[in-house]
Design a protein around this nucleic acid. Sequence first.
DNA 1: CGACTCCTACCAACCAGTCGGTACAATTCA
DNA 2: TGAATTGTACCGACTGGTTGGTAGGAGTCG
Lengths: 194, 194
Amino acid sequence: MKTEQVISMTTKKEHIILTTSELIHSKGYENTKLSDILNAADIGKGQFYHYFSTKKDLGIAVVDQFVRTWDQNLIEAILKSDKPSGEKLNEMLDWAIAYHEKSASFRGCPFGNLALEMSEHDETFRTKVNVLFEKWINSLADVLKDIVGEDMARQHAQAVVAQIEGGILLMKNFQDLTILKNIVENIRVQYAKH
Amino acid sequence: MKTEQVISMTTKKEHIILTTSELIHSKGYENTKLSDILNAADIGKGQFYHYFSTKKDLGIAVVDQFVRTWDQNLIEAILKSDKPSGEKLNEMLDWAIAYHEKSASFRGCPFGNLALEMSEHDETFRTKVNVLFEKWINSLADVLKDIVGEDMARQHAQAVVAQIEGGILLMKNFQDLTILKNIVENIRVQYAKH
DNA sequence: CGACTCCTACCAACCAGTCGGTACAATTCA
DNA sequence: TGAATTGTACCGACTGGTTGGTAGGAGTCG
């Protein structure tokens, strides 16, 4: 029984990008070998090099895809919605936990992972990850303006993002989701009574 | 006579460990190739495999060395000293900044780096990194007891460590030390008024 | 001597990337 | 019309270089 046509939902190129996203998210970029990609996406080398010129070319497409997704789901849908600020902050924190709850493993934050793996020896990746962090901090600072005032907003936004990323790091190493939950709860309390 | 032999052997082995520490700190474990180690330490392969049985064997020795150093300089010398708690917290934060200030590059926290690189696909490294984080959080919780009370101490300790690690992550990606400084200042303010 | 220390030459496995070729549909030409 | 040409999608054997690790020899020193 052949199920060839099922894949035509997305294009072949998108299929490769999506499959590789998973691999890079859990194994990192360098540690994801071309052979892993070829096996996971069930394609041959010819097909791969028909759509992408190098492995890095694919890597960049994967990061772009991550940035696009987060831009939609976190920044646009939550932080730039027209709900009250306190609600937006809470929704962001809910989203963070839900993100790591659903993927029964401890792969961590794709941007945090890439930041630590790549930022010191590859400018292309560093810059792309940077754009997302910058957007995140800026739009979060906008939200926090109403809570801590204009002067301190950006500093607090940095601190909150740092706390989340650090929490994810600890969660990953302890292989224990409750650590992240504690830290998120800590953030909630910190900004609830303002 | 025998002492001299032992010392020179230890020195040589330690020299390899120390040199590799630098490499692993800035490039990560997998990305530090054996040839890099051989070049940096200026030794031949025979010498390497005389002292270490595998690359992973060296990697473990390097992590052990990091753990020992931090145990001495951070946990014993600062967090378990007999100074007042507020002072110990401040000294820890000073130490964190000084650590990243002196190494004119942005290599990040060796444990944070290893946690994200290795913890999902190597139990040995994950466990060793875990031990250090556990020690750090426990002895920091002891310090925070006097500031936030026994009940909340551990949760706050986790949050502070997360904030520092996340701050280092952002600092590394933004290649900007002031981000870490802001976050550390934020922590200082948070626990100063208690 | 013989244990210890350290060397170079070498190995199989693996890596990203290349290359000659195939299948087949669309376009051009006679 | 239908034969020749062109373009797109794909294959997998192969390449040059790198990887971690091994074998066997040589210098040193008690």
